[in-house]
């Protein structure tokens, strides 16, 4: 089972709390937007899910795919 991490850029206000919670998944790109590096392992995926719960705008979605 893998998860695909997605940022809704219309909701995102670029507070960068996700960068604090999961720095290996989220980073601010040169355009100011949050860029996602899809989690490479289970630990990174868990951090991405944690960032989803913390996001103050609920702009992160980690959907499950089988």
């Amino acid at each position: 089972m893998t998860e695909r991490v997605h940022v809704d850029h219309r909701r995102c206000r670029r507070h960068a709390l996700c960068v604090i919670v999961a720095p290996d998944v989220f980073a601010r790109g040169g355009d100011g937007r949050m860029h996602v590096t899809q989690p490479a392992n289970a630990d990174a995926a868990a951090r991405a899910r944690e960032a989803e719960r913390y996001c103050p705008l609920q702009a992160i979605d980690t959907e499950r795919r089988r």
């Binding site: 670029r14 507070h15 960068a16 960068v19 604090i20 720095p23 601010r28």
Partner: peptide, 10 residues
């Protein structure tokens, strides 16, 4: 300054 926030938080 979100990037500064990240650095200061750390």
């Amino acid at each position: 300054r979100p990037a500064v926030s990240v650095a200061l938080h750390r």
